[in-house]
Amino acid sequence: MTPSNFAALAPTVRQHRYLEPSVFWSIRQGFSKRLALAIASVSLIVPLLIWSAVSYSGLVTPLFLPAPTVVIAAGIKMLTEDNLLFDVLVSSSRVLAGFLVAAIIGVPLGIAMGTFHSMDNLFAPLVGTVRYMPVTAFVPLIVIWLGLGEVSKILIIMLGVVLYNAIMVADAVKFIPNEMINVAYTLGASRRDILFKVIMPAAFPSILDTLRVNISGAWNFLIIAELVAAQNGLGFKIIQAQRFLQTEKVLFCIAIIGIIGLVIDYGLRWISRKLTPWADQGRS
């Protein structure tokens, strides 16, 4: 037998292609905190530089896009002369109250829908239908039913968030593997044990993530809520400044809402890490 025949009989060796290490495109691998901070800084500084270049160069009329220094000066004036801190506290209390009510209603409803088919069949058609109805369409009815007080504003914020809480929590519960439940049944667990010792601990990290994501929706509905005969609040300040074409005040109030939202987001992430150390903290 010739050498060529031996070569033909020899097993073919697969050529493996090994991935080269990557700093920016590594998938769920370690990442330097210093580099992460640098990238985050760039993501904030670059838009600010573009804004400064466009506004200071005069490419856009100051009425439509005032310079950053003009916005900061207007903000300082609002803080010192217009009592803006009081408006921040008022808006924060409204968002907090509306979001807490939405969590108290939405989270148990979502757990029930995700756990029991009977509850899912009972509430899913209603939740799925009302979810597509714009909250703004209910504002006249809310004013008629509850008047122009704080309750109506809190209800508007609650309605804007509660159904999303319920749907996202229900999906989180449905993603719990059936094997976990079957093993608990095999070990003699009751339905109550399954709910409180298997389902709720397994879904708890996702519930915290749901609340962290949806609290941004509560701030979005704040402007709608403060359209209802409000005399204070960040939404009221934005609407008032809009009427007089005070763009710099509008931008400063929007920036304040963004900063508050960023603080809340990182605060909830910290709470999630402390309460659920077993969960994958790499998720967004």
Rank of each mutant, 00 (worst) to 15 (best):
P66L: 09
G114M: 02
S206I: 00
L195W: 07
G267H: 02
N232A: 15
L85G: 05
R283Q: 10
G98L: 05
A73M: 12
S284G: 14
F116C: 06
V213E: 04
V71C: 01
E81C: 09
L89M: 08
V151W: 06
M180K: 07
F99L: 12
F138Y: 11
A170Q: 03
R94Y: 08
T129P: 01
R34F: 12
I215W: 03
M133L: 15
N165Y: 09
G258N: 06
N214L: 07
S52G: 09
T80P: 02
G149R: 02
S272Q: 14
R34W: 14
V95Q: 01
V54L: 13
M180Q: 15
W278S: 08
I144C: 04
V198E: 04
V54F: 13
M180W: 12
Y164Q: 15
L63R: 15
A279W: 05
P68V: 10
M1V: 09
L159N: 03
T129K: 03
G110E: 10
A97E: 04
F6V: 13
L155G: 00
I156Y: 01
L65K: 03
K249L: 04
L84Q: 02
V23P: 00
A38N: 04
Y164T: 09
F64W: 13
S190Q: 08
V88P: 01
Q29A: 12
A137R: 02
S32R: 06
H16A: 13
P47I: 08
T210G: 15
M168E: 07
I194R: 04
E150W: 06
G30S: 15
R28W: 08
V60F: 12
T61Q: 15
T210A: 09
S118V: 15
R28L: 12
I154N: 05
L9C: 07
M158G: 10
A225H: 08
L63T: 14
N220M: 14
R28Y: 11
L49Q: 02
